[in-house]
Amino acid sequence: MKKEVLVSDIAPTESCRHPDMTNLLRIINKHNAAGGGLIAILGEIQDEYGYLPEDVLRIVSDQSGRSLVDIYGVATFYRSFSLKPRGRHLVCACLGTACHVRGAPRIVDELERQLGIKAGETTADKEFTLETVNCLGACALGPVVVIDGRYFSKVRQSRVGQLLDEARNGFDSAEAAKDKRIFALNVNCPHCNCGVMDETFALDGLPSIKVNVSHGGKEGALWLSCLYGSYSVAAEFDIPANVIVPFCCPHCERELTSASTCSMCSAPMVHMLVQGGGTIQICSRRGCRNHMLDVA
């Protein structure tokens, strides 16, 4: 129940106008070995922003001592890097020889028809980006479609709509419903014992846990998935990775502190009561997944 995927309504382009320098420097210094590591740097930046923004590439050039020409050459060479903002969900259809003879062009046509875009484009609502690849190396399973990193084999035209719907709702929620290890927790504030569940904001298809957070002079709501094992979060404003934020109860405004610190990153833990008995503690550092559940 921690912040991992930031599903905020902040558009990717918004956050890139002011690139987070400390985070960029961390990425660059982590991989910037002598003469190597460029692809690792670009890969991590793409994970962060969803694409490779021009001003970020210029910063990488300044900070890593590589020329912009080399970075741009690598960024345009590989199909997996994108210089244009991509949608929230990336749909990748294989058009390799084996998939092609098994009817991949029809799948691409169907995807294009249902999404209303051509291959290589992004829908106007920034939900889907459709791309084609020339081979994914899973020829026996063709036609292969990859959506958000999940592989779907022997895709038929009739299944396309269902796959897009599942992608829209998030594959995690679909799987969470089936997986017995993932269950929902309803929690209360330990100070005022008020429920902090927000029925109006759904995450993973269930009411979310609403807390108030503040960072960098801004205050706002943070919604955590109530599913134990899911790390989906949404926030009113962008919280950079590795930042420790104070969590407060939305009712009594008191901080949800705990006496203990995180065993993995030694950040303060956040303490909440589980309805029906027990406590849950989660780490307050963004990106850290450490948590402790103690059910009575």
């Binding site: 020329s67 912009l68 020409v69 080399d70 741009y72 050459g73 345009t76 060479f77």
Partner: peptide
């Protein structure tokens, strides 16, 4: 200078 280079493939 390294002002120009190859792009795409």
């Amino acid at each position: 200078a390294k002002a120009i280079g190859f792009r795409n493939r």
